[in-house]
Amino acid sequence: MRQNADHLMAFIRAMVRNNALAEDVFQETFLVAWRRFDDFDRDRPFGPWLRGIAHRTALGLKRKTRKEFAVDTAIVDVLESHAAGYERISMSEESSAAEMLNDCVGRLPPRYREVIEVLYRGGRSISEVAEATDAGAEAVKKRLQRARRMIADCLRTKGLLA
C-alpha cells in the first residue's frame, strides 16, 4: 500500500481536484483493490490496474454524490501516462519525484516561485497572497497557472511527465 500510495493519490487528486473527495476515492479504491486482488493478472503492472479502479471509483462516486468534477476520458488518459511516469520514478532509486519537483520549483523566476512557495508550502490562500502582494486574486491565479505550466515543462524534461 505504502509503495503505491503516492502515485495513486497524485492520480486521484489530479482527477477529482478536491482533497476531501480524493481521500474518499483513495480509501474506496484500496478497499476494492483488496477485495478484487484475485482478479489481478500478475503478469501485468499493478499501478495501471490500481488507477483503473480509482477511475471507476471516482466515476461511481460522482454519480452517487453528484459532485461536479471533470473526468473526461482524454484527460484521464494523459493523467494515467503522468502517473505511470511518477510510479516509474518512485520505483527507481536514482531520484525522487519530490526532488524533481523541488528542482523545478527552484528554477522558476522569482515572482512565480514566490507564489508557489507561499501557497503550497506556506499554507496561505490565494486571497491572502493577493492581499500581501497587492495583486488581484485573478492575477495571482494566472501567475499560479503559468508557474504550473513551467513546472510541467520542466518535469517533462526530467521524464516525470509524459
Binding site: R13, H82, Y86, I151, L161
Partner: peptide, 26 residues
C-alpha cells in the same frame, strides 16, 4: 489540462502536512 492538474496534485503532495496525512491515509 492534465499537465496542470497533475502538477497541482504534486504540489499538494509537497505541502508540509502531507507526510503525516499520507501516513494517516495508509
Amino acid at each position: 489540462q492534465a499537465d496542470d492538474r497533475f502538477v497541482e496534485a504534486l504540489l499538494e503532495a509537497s505541502k508540509p502536512e502531507e507526510a503525516a496525512a499520507s501516513e494517516a491515509r495508509i
